[in-house]
Computed example of a mutant assay.
Amino acid sequence: MDDLVRGVIPEGYQIELFEGTVIMTPQGPEQSRTVFRLSSAAEAAELPAERVLSDVLIKFPGENDAAPDLTILAEGATRAGNSYFSHDVLAVVEVPSEPDDDKDYVRNVRKYGRYGIRTYLVADPFKGVCTLMTEPYATGYGKVQEVPYGETVTLYLDSGEVVPIDTSTFPVHQG
């Protein structure tokens, strides 16, 4: 705790403020490799690298900010220091760091839906399943599709861009 007060984050940990709670989570190897593969899929779909971010702060006016595992921004997104605004986000991908993560499956569903994030994907290394959510509304998403690892999940962005993601190489947590 003394290290945290001095601003030192222990190696392998991520610290995030979420709804007034400080969350400190280690990023596991499955999470790291999955985010890398997601970034590679965005690159293969020819999305400009400056629009694909990992662990960069997104500002949600009137609510706690977030640093999603992967964010795809709209063209011309407004940078604010080292962060961006939620209204410029086309898609968010989260990779849970623990089984049945309430943050990714409940709180983020409500938050991202409320702020109109059109595409929200949870790539879950514990379940070996991607959950794709679209059609946001005030408390969540109107359409939810589960895609098992090994199949392709496709992100259709409001920009007209399409990002096919081959999940066959996504790592599964081995306990």
Rank of each mutant, 00 (worst) to 15 (best):
M1E: 06
D2N: 11
D3F: 06
V5R: 10
G7S: 10
V8Y: 01
P10T: 07
Y13G: 07
Y13R: 11
G20H: 11
M24N: 10
Q31T: 15
R33H: 11
V35R: 10
V35K: 05
F36G: 13
F36K: 15
S39V: 04
S40H: 14
L47M: 07
L47K: 01
E50D: 14
E50P: 05
E50K: 08
R51Q: 09
R51K: 05
L57V: 14
F60W: 06
G62N: 08
A66C: 10
P68G: 00
P68A: 03
T71M: 05
A80L: 14
N82Q: 09
N82A: 09
H87T: 06
H87C: 12
D88I: 01
V89T: 04
P96G: 06
P96V: 04
E98D: 12
D102N: 12
K103A: 09
K103P: 00
Y105S: 06
V109N: 05
V109P: 01
R110T: 15
K111G: 04
K111Q: 11
Y112Q: 03
R114I: 08
G116W: 05
L121W: 08
V122I: 15
V122S: 02
G128W: 00
V129Q: 15
V129K: 13
C130D: 12
T131K: 05
G140D: 04
V147S: 05
V147N: 04
P148W: 07
P148V: 13
G150K: 13
L157H: 06
S159N: 05
G160M: 04
G160K: 09
F170C: 02
P171E: 12
